[in-house]
């Protein structure tokens, strides 16, 4: 493994200073992806800047908005009963995330910043209308998560900027949600994942959100499906139409894990099942 220098700043200001001073320096949180990429030679950072000592990055706050510090591990999400009670979708994605060992290291912010098309937390965060708070030497800004992803491994982050927290709206009343993920074996990367989130007014869906992972260059919201579902009561014909629209909104690839056509059919099936399951979810 190519040796690298390792910095552990205690403040963001110090992190920005180091990032500005060392060409090719990279921020690192849990390291579960970065260390693998360095070991394989795909990444040769000028230095690593650990975010592990910046305490403000690991707080979780529930209030008028909910803030999940970017440095929060997947395991810490699962160990936060108020958070998972308020947003059951977070637990649905966090529970099957990799392995216990990886969940204890990998962070929510790291999973988002890696911008893997298959990132397990991305579909549920998209379905929750998540925004990301970004801090850089020039100040702080907030971006909707679906505008943050720019392509595989590419994000809206400018050099030196750090994703500091995930911002969620307060939990919605009468919210229903479901997350379905398929992979060949448990620890494998998702072939396809689908998250849905909506409110029920009587039997009608309001503010539907439908998001999918591993079926396009970025995790994405299926807006045609969302528009179709708005204000409608679910019946067989609506599910058929939702499944059909979902196939048209994605651009899956064929790789060693699955063919594009398989992913397409899997996505439409998961969309159908996730909407059905969320409607039947009892509160």
């Amino acid at each position: 493994m190519t040796p690298f220098d390792y910095h552990r700043p205690e403040t963001l200001a110090e992190a920005f200073r180091i990032a500005g001073a060392i060409p090719g320096a990279r921020y690192v949180a849990g390291g579960t992806d970065m260390m693998v990429r360095i070991r394989s030679g795909r990444e040769r950072p000028g230095a690593l800047i650990s975010l592990g000592r910046i305490d403000t990055l690991s707080r979780i706050e529930l209030g008028s908005v909910t803030q999940i510090g970017a440095r929060t591990t997947i395991g810490q999400v699962l160990e936060h009963p108020e958070l998972t009670a308020a947003y059951p979708l977070l637990a649905l994605a966090a529970r099957p995330f990799a392995s216990v060992q990886v969940r204890n290291l990998a962070t929510v912010g790291g999973n988002v910043c890696n911008a893997s098309p298959a990132a397990d937390m991305a579909p549920v965060l998209l379905a929750l209308d998540a925004r990301v708070e970004i801090e850089g030497p020039q100040g702080t800004r907030e971006v909707p998560l679906d505008a943050f992803f720019k392509g595989p491994g590419q994000t809206d982050l400018a050099p030196r900027e750090v994703l500091t927290s995930i911002v969620l709206e307060p939990p919605r009343p009468e919210a229903r949600s479901c997350f379905l993920r398929r992979s060949r074996v448990g620890m494998d990367i998702a072939l396809t994942s689908v998250a849905v989130h909506f409110q029920l007014a009587g039997n009608r869906l309001t503010r539907p959100r439908v998001a999918a992972g591993a079926v396009a260059p970025c995790p994405l919201r299926l807006r045609a499906v969302e528009n179709l579902l708005e204000g409608r009561a679910v019946d067989a014909a609506l599910l058929d139409e939702a499944a059909r629209l979902a196939e048209g909104e994605i651009a899956p690839i064929t790789d060693i894990r699955a063919s594009a056509s398989y992913r397409r059919r899997l996505t439409s099936t998961l969309v159908r099942r996730a909407i059905t399951a969320a409607c039947e979810e009892s509160r």
Binding site: G30, T32, M35, V36, G75, V100, Q101, N104, L105
Partner: peptide, 22 residues
């Protein structure tokens, strides 16, 4: 690479992969 778990140790009581940690 954090896949096989042979290097599992406990960090503050929780299992982690010692091969992925600086």
């Amino acid at each position: 690479n954090g896949e096989c778990g042979s290097c599992t140790v406990l960090l503050d009581g929780r299992p982690v992969n010692a091969c992925l940690l600086v």
